[in-house]
């Protein structure tokens, strides 16, 4: 049997306000435990800010600053510089944001921090839309998915953030999934040991936003990986791509069929989506061979 295991050191607490079955809370648990005690967190408006908690409570054992939506990477930079200026060079700075705060409004600050190669670990919880505001389209929303602001399905593709970041030549970029918790934990641990800018993008199937059952977030994220919709990869120095999940083994159908946001698509759209996933996978594989 495949085992999962990660360091559980009590850094994330019960009683948080995530929805029952939330994969983001689950990922938070893994990340906070992997990153450890000597860490300062930055969190910007998103579900993850709700999970860290409303005053007077916090679900994290590390300190957090609840920052501004477009400022995640800038604030993380500020925290790092503040710590360094006071001799706390060894403290990790962990920045948590959603895809809206990363792909959209926060991209400018993210690009800047990446270009400066700030020594921060930036984690994007990518639920492919503005889910904390009830489910609207972001530039991470994939083609054909319906949201509150694209009820007939989004007509453009998901932005490829990995390639954008790779173009900045930062030391480490990775994708991760709550279905692969050991992998997530290892990636956080690996990223933490690297000096400079690290970005980990975690796919988060949003229960209400994607229209999936309370107990299905892990299953859906596993299918996202296995169907090649969300491959688990690492990119080092923006150049060296590697795929860390098994090969794409499944068609996208089961992945799509578990979600309400794809319920409206036609058979021909389904074929196009499959083609798109196949093409992206081929391009990714080609990159790993460069």
């Amino acid at each position: 049997m495949k085992d999962i295991e990660y360091n559980e050191a009590g850094q994330f607490c019960s009683g948080h306000n995530a929805c029952a079955g939330c994969a983001e809370a689950l990922s938070m648990r893994v990340i906070l435990n992997a990153v450890g005690k000597n860490t300062v967190g930055v969190v910007v408006p998103s579900c993850v800010a709700i999970i860290v908690g409303a005053h007077p409570r916090s679900s994290a054992k590390i300190p957090f600053i609840h920052g501004l939506l477009e400022s995640a990477a800038a604030m993380a930079s500020g925290v790092k510089r503040g710590l360094v200026s006071q001799g706390k060079d060894d403290t990790t700075v962990l920045c948590l944001a959603g895809d809206g705060g990363t792909y959209d409004i926060g991209l400018q600050a993210l690009s800047s921090a990446a270009e400066r190669n700030e020594d921060i670990l930036y984690v994007c919880f990518d639920n492919e839309g503005y889910m904390n505001t009830g489910g609207q389209t972001s530039s991470s929303t994939p083609l054909a998915a319906s949201t509150g602001s694209s009820p007939l399905g989004k007509t453009t593709r998901k932005k490829n953030l990995v390639e954008i970041l790779a173009a900045h030549r930062i030391p480490y970029i990775a994708t991760a999934s709550p279905s692969h918790l050991s992998d997530l934990s290892e990636k956080v641990t690996k990223a933490k040991a690297i000096r400079g800018m690290k970005v980990i993008i975690v796919v988060i199937p949003c229960l209400p936003g994607w229209g999936i059952a309370d107990d299905a977030a892990v299953k859906v994220s596993r299918l996202a990986v296995e169907s090649g919709v969300f491959p688990l990869i690492e990119v080092e120095d923006g150049l060296r791509y590697s795929i860390n999940s098994a090969d794409k083994t499944k068609p996208i159908d089961e992945y799509l069929d578990l979600q309400k946001r794809y319920r409206h698509i036609s058979d021909s759209e389904r074929v196009e989506l499959q083609q798109d996933v196949d093409d992206s996978w081929d391009r990714l594989v080609a990159r790993t061979k460069m």
Partner: peptide, 15 residues
């Protein structure tokens, strides 16, 4: 915007 964001965050560390 990012300058002040960084200022805010740095200040929150006690700097």
């Amino acid at each position: 915007h990012s300058a002040m964001a960084a200022a805010v965050a740095a200040s929150a560390t006690g700097a």
